[in-house]
Design a protein around this nucleic acid. Structure first.
Lengths: 179, 179
DNA sequence: CTATGTTGCTTGAACATTCAACTCAAGGAG
DNA sequence: CTCCTTGAGTTGAATGTTCAAGCAACATAG
């Protein structure tokens, strides 16, 4: 039901989707539902880690000093502060990260431990291989780049802040500032 | 950490991503994490429904006789049978769907009730508006179609069966067979 | 110097999802 | 006919996520 359900009334208000658009929308919805769990399979198997936790570690791994504040990390990992707090709690008890009070106010910094880092080094290759197998390779470079641009436009519509945080991290990664 | 972490060893095995590819990948990951919850906000507010439950109703709403078998529905909604079973249980207790034993074997059919249908009619416009606001309109028709094609390629890589189920439903929708 | 607000995070309970085990019905194989 | 095996769902416990409330450290205003 993404097109007009029953054309009884004139239905002036709703701008329904064309059948082309419905097709695209359905495909996108299927991807957002399936891709995370498809990735979870590999991560869970190889490291007892879910996708969200992986994103956290990936973020820290590329941050200066392997450290980020909670709020920034929440924005980067596209999760709520609460979800992050729970997740970091779990990961702390497994010894992958530590929390330290940051300079000012009530702020908290999260940093990756050596154990966390070595875990990442163990899992990352498999994860990248999955990324290739499911997305990058089937699409090829051209379409992958196109997809990236489309996603950035969507993110901008959802919340303009996210794009800038991600871009910042990506710039750091590209520069190799962290190595 | 989607690129090479520390170039000590030759690292013959892993084909890391280029910085262009990492950018696209990061944007895609952010979308798959954020889009469902962004959509949930509207659905929850307007109908106490989450995105997965909406997909179930949407599937039924476009199915002949507003009815589908559990397995087919699971495939369509990109969820596990177990998840679907729990979700349908909840929705049944709210009076939106009913389960009836289907002809052969252990099979079960799920159908949308009148209450479910009228609920859909109430929510759908708002949902479509969100779909437009966050995706279709910012991208424009060309890029939306491109995005759809890319998603279909990804789905094919994850599980070739899904594409056909979705296409089948979409064909029905396009034909208007259910009206 | 109290009161009021704001930021940044944590917490607990309610709710949803996953995982592994189980049931029940058919379909063969011998 | 009896014994696997497979297919289709269900169930309960363990795990994760969300939601609303709470709390501590400042800031600002009176």
């Amino acid at each position: 039901m993404t097109r007009q359900p029953s054309p009884k009334e004139p239905d002036v208000e709703t701008k329904w989707l064309t059948s082309e658009e419905v097709r695209s929308w359905a495909a996108l919805m299927a991807v957002v539902e399936m891709l995370p769990s498809a990735l979870d399979v590999q991560l869970k198997r190889d490291a007892g880690l879910n996708h969200f936790e992986y994103m956290i570690l990936a973020g820290l791994s590329d941050a200066p000093g392997h450290t980020m504040g909670m709020s920034q990390l929440a924005l980067f990992s596209s999760g709520s502060l609460s979800r992050l707090s729970h997740a970091v709690g779990r990961m702390e008890s497994k010894g992958w990260v530590v929390r330290t009070p940051a300079g000012t106010g009530r702020a908290v910094d999260v940093s990756m431990t050596a154990a966390g880092r070595s875990m990442m080094e163990r899992v990352a290759p498999g994860h990248v291989a999955e990324a290739r197998r499911l997305v990058v390779d089937p699409l090829g470079p051209q379409r992958t780049a196109q997809l990236g641009r489309a996603c950035r436009m969507i993110l901008d519509a959802i919340d303009p802040n996210v794009t800038s945080v991600i871009d910042a991290t990506m710039d750091r990664v590209a520069d190799g500032t962290t190595r």
